[in-house]
Design a protein around this nucleic acid. Structure first.
Lengths: 190, 190
DNA sequence: AGCACTGCTTGATAAATATCAAGAATTTAC
DNA sequence: GTAAATTCTTGATATTTATCAAGCAGTGCT
């Protein structure tokens, strides 16, 4: 568990100390108990948070099934960007998979940052571009890798997650059924 | 074929006429002959263009295969965002699938826009957020839809593309082999 | 016209992945 | 601590998708 300053500078790395302080003062700590919702499909997501501890899952429903889009752990930010920035209803439900501790900033306070920090627009732009690139990368992986390769890659990146959350959610996020996930997992173990 | 003003306002819709004129003056027309490269993997992409006419394909190679990430037609913008904004080497190759006519702006001129247009940062932010959302949507589709469903959905969105580009590229973009694509296509026809 | 080239289709077959069902293991709730 | 609920595993089977191989259909070239 790090400080808010550290979480922020991980995403927005070239902020002067004084400005960083100002930004931090706009955040408030927040707790979610296990099972609580950060935002639900159809609601407006009006905040952005850094995960101080705990795990959150972002998912949505199709007609038949539930699709996990993302699982976030300490250090990640969490929000529905399109709901936050465009004021749309959220496509996603974001739910706490454990006790969760957050640093949160409301959309109103978030908008203030631009007035406090001179180069904020540039930083925010880079932040969004980074988010875009991450998604682009993920699409490439989904187009080019098999289920087993996606498993391996994700396990290499976040092995600790595999004993912290129900595996079915990881399976869904990787685009396979829990059964397929289980079989690949068994194959990988020895 | 529309005017540059129309292409720009499609993505950045609330610009005053005078400012729009200034922005347009930074673009130059450009032609690519069929097969020519807009950018190649490993190069730096230093421009952003609107497609006035023609078709471009963005792709990359894995060890075994070539993966088409995107096919762009009239009205779309084309660039490697992460290369453009971060100065990185491009992951992608972008190639003209036909004679292509573009309006292009160099990165140097692009950076000038911020000084010309007061609310540019806000517009650019929304633009990037929109790009992000599009990618997020696409991931959801790849996670939740079968090959046939992806075919149907894409056909519903861009049917004209199906007789303008080699179908194998569409197949790749949708995450299936040309054979599978062909079989689904046959099934859909009658 | 005839020939190479590229892209598309088709069939046969194999491999990957999903589905369904049951049981084992783990976690949660009281 | 025990019962209930949830999650995970496993097997049998079905479906989807990929692979391989061959042939066909355009297209451009000379």
């Amino acid at each position: 568990m790090k400080t808010l300053e550290q979480y922020i500078t991980h995403y927005f790395d070239i902020i002067a100390p004084a400005e960083l302080q100002q930004i931090c003062s706009l955040f408030v700590p927040e707790q979610l108990s296990k099972g609580a919702y950060f935002v639900k499909t159809g609601q407006h997501c009006r905040k952005l948070s850094f995960i101080r501890s705990g795990i959150l899952r972002m998912y949505a429903h199709t007609d038949e099934k539930e699709v996990t889009q993302w699982i976030g752990t300490e250090g990640y930010f969490v929000t529905d960007l399109s709901s936050l920035l465009f004021g749309q209803q959220s496509r996603w439900t974001i739910q706490a998979l454990s006790e969760v501790s957050l640093f949160s900033i409301s959309i109103e306070h978030y908008r203030k940052i631009g007035r406090l920090v001179r180069q904020w627009d540039e930083l925010e732009k880079m932040f969004l571009a980074k988010c875009f690139t991450t998604m682009e990368h993920r699409i490439f992986d989904l187009l080019s890798l098999s289920a087993e390769e996606r498993y391996k890659q994700f396990f290499a990146q976040q092995p600790e997650l595999f004993n912290q959350v129900p595996l079915q959610y990881i399976a869904s996020m990787l685009g396979m059924t829990p059964e397929t996930f289980s079989r690949i997992r068994k194959k990988m173990l020895p």
